[in-house]
């Protein structure tokens, strides 16, 4: 897996609370058996006026010409709530988003993003508003994100963020989390021997 160290990219702002994974990727796209191609369907109901995805909704922020190529998404509180569908982060990543900055994230969504090498940054509402204002003034503002230093800079503003050490390490090194757990197989086997017979559920 690739690691994540830093990023310089445009950001786009969708300041709304409780953006759920049904909005990120509606159910009709969940019947796939692979992980590819979901980006086209990201925000389907908001992004397209028709079900066949032929007619873009010109009012939706991701469709504005000035926001094409954005790799950072700004949003409100409880981003990614609802369904555990990992198809939602797959869609965000496939669309091109590498970093999401929000006031807070839903638990399962957060874990899913970590497993997909996406960086989620939590910032207070007022800072997100400030960043959003920068985008409104100058949509092509370049956001620089330095994961090692936990620092976001844009338009001469520097904002520190904090990220769990484990998540950071995982991102920086692009670790294979299953591979890592398999290095402690002996401990798992030892645990299995300790499970009382009546609780083995076999």
């Amino acid at each position: 897996m690739r690691g994540f160290t830093s990023l310089s990219a445009q950001a786009v702002s969708l300041l709304q609370d409780n953006i759920d994974t049904d909005q990120l990727l509606p159910k009709q796209f969940l019947n796939a058996i692979d992980r590819i191609g979901f980006g086209q369907h990201l925000f389907h109901d908001w992004r397209y006026l028709d079900d066949k995805e032929a007619v873009l909704n010109p009012d939706f922020v991701l469709n504005k010409p000035e926001h094409q190529g954005a790799e950072i998404l700004l949003s409100g509180a409880n981003f990614g709530c609802g369904s555990s569908r990992e198809h939602a982060p797959w869609a965000l990543a496939d669309y091109g988003f590498k970093v999401i900055i929000a006031e807070s994230f839903a638990d399962i969504f957060y874990a899913n993003c970590v497993n997909n090498q996406m960086l989620l940054i939590t910032l207070p509402a007022e800072q997100i508003k400030k960043l959003s204002d920068i985008i409104a003034t100058k949509p092509d503002s370049l956001f620089h994100i330095d994961l090692e230093r936990e620092l976001l800079t844009v338009a001469a503003i520097g904002i520190g963020f904090s990220i769990e050490p484990l998540v950071k390490q995982n991102l920086l090194l692009g670790l294979d989390r299953i591979g890592l757990t398999l290095t402690v197989q002996d401990a798992i086997s030892a645990y299995e021997k300790r499970i009382p017979r009546f609780m083995r559920g076999e």
Binding site: S84, R85, E86, I108, A111, N115, R177, I178, T181, I188
Partner: peptide
């Protein structure tokens, strides 16, 4: 009992464990 994404489903298949805080 809790819900997980597909990468963690794979993690459970492979290890019968999950990393959690």
């Amino acid at each position: 009992a809790f819900g997980i994404g597909t990468s963690d489903v794979e993690h459970v298949f492979a290890t019968q464990t999950l990393r959690q805080s």
